[in-house]
């Protein structure tokens, strides 16, 4: 794979931004650190969704299923064995009697997320449009229902607690960087470019021999693995989790982040995740104690969500192509702009 200078800036922009947020997290007070870490984990989740939805152009409401599977797999397998007998009473014995370390739990989360996505994707990747949206949504509902009701594989409807809180500034930053680099390498690869081409024009892509089903399945599986990994980071950030935290609200919020940033670029996924997380954090602080930036913002209690939703709607109405316009990060504005945001642009001249 050839990586010209413009391609590297496409990676460096998102990567440096994430490192900057990670660095800010280490300097923040204990009460503020959580906001930065949350934003970084959001980047991982949104980049995972981008790998499928952004590159293939097929809407999916199901990617949070893989976040959920990853979160509960990593969570259940990380609770120390001596604590499990007390908190996870009805779980299968082999799950109860084993635990793994932090990094293996993240790898397990990625593997399970990817495997689950592969199984689900095999039949579902034949669909597109609204049918694909609803079928993937059905996957989310089934995943949530099973995780919530089947207490042999997890905590069921109760809270999974006592998960080691290992997602600090370093891990959150590294995690987000891993997601960004994987997404970047994929979208720059031949297969990633083929899939993007099929989004622009499925008929033409098919006519030149692209197996759209296979390419979509690959992206879906990769997205599932990254989502599972992000779920692992998430559970290790929170320390305790319920099935409701990886369900509808997270699905809508992360999709909104992606669309607000710009659906069709990695830069958009990162910017959207950070912008919406940042706005949400700002509004929470303003609601709790007021934020002083030139003027003291002091929100009336309960209005945070009103402002958050209103600003998100406004951004989409004013800028339907997202904050980045769906374009990748560039150091300088070049007049020539490719039809495919991921294709290597020729340097001018």
């Amino acid at each position: 794979m050839r990586l010209p200078f413009d391609a590297l800036t496409e990676l460096l922009g998102p990567a440096l931004l994430v490192i900057l947020v990670g660095a800010l997290a280490t300097t923040a007070s204990a009460s503020n650190e959580g906001y930065f870490l949350n934003a970084l984990v959001s980047v991982s989740v949104v980049v995972a969704i981008y790998v499928f939805v952004g590159i293939s152009g097929v809407l999916s409401f199901g990617q949070i299923s893989f976040v959920a599977v990853g979160a509960f797999a990593a969570g259940v397998m990380s609770v120390p064995v001596e604590s499990k007998k007390g908190v996870l009473t009805s779980i299968f014995p082999f799950l109860r009697d084993h635990s793994v370390g932090n990094v293996p739990s993240l790898l397990l989360a990625a593997a399970l997320g990817g495997a689950f996505a592969f199984l689900v994707g095999m039949p579902l990747m034949r669909l597109s449009g609204l049918a694909a949206g609803i079928a993937t949504f059905a996957v989310l509902e089934i995943t949530h229902n099973v995780l919530r009701e089947w207490d042999k594989i997890g905590p069921g409807a109760t809270t999974l607690a006592l998960v080691p809180e290992t997602t600090g500034a370093l891990q959150a930053t590294l995690g987000a960087l891993v997601a960004i680099v994987v997404a970047f390498l994929y979208q720059r690869s031949r297969r990633g470019r083929l899939l993007r081409a099929s989004r622009e024009d499925p008929a033409v892509a098919r006519s030149v021999g692209v197996n759209i089903h296979l390419e979509r399945l690959l992206a879906f599986t990769l997205s599932g693995a990254l989502a599972g990994f992000a779920g692992g980071l998430y559970v290790h950030l929170l320390g305790s989790i319920t099935t409701e935290q990886v369900y509808l609200e997270l699905t809508f919020l992360t999709l909104a982040m992606l669309v607000i940033g710009g659906l069709t670029s990695l830069w958009g996924a990162v910017i959207g995740a950070l912008a919406v997380s940042g706005l949400d954090s700002f509004l929470s602080r303003a609601e709790q104690s007021g934020v002083h930036v030139v003027y003291t913002f002091n929100l009336w209690e309960g209005t945070r969500l009103v402002f958050l939703a209103a600003i998100m709607a406004l951004v989409l109405i004013v800028r339907p192509s997202g904050l980045t316009g769906g374009r990748e990060f560039r150091l300088r504005r070049i007049p020539w702009r490719g039809r495919w945001a991921g294709a290597s642009p020729k340097p001018p001249g």
Partner: peptide
């Protein structure tokens, strides 16, 4: 695009 319209109505719903 349909995705933008749908996501905007999510936001309106939450609002």
């Amino acid at each position: 695009s349909p995705a933008v319209m749908l996501v905007t109505t999510f936001a309106v719903s939450f609002l």
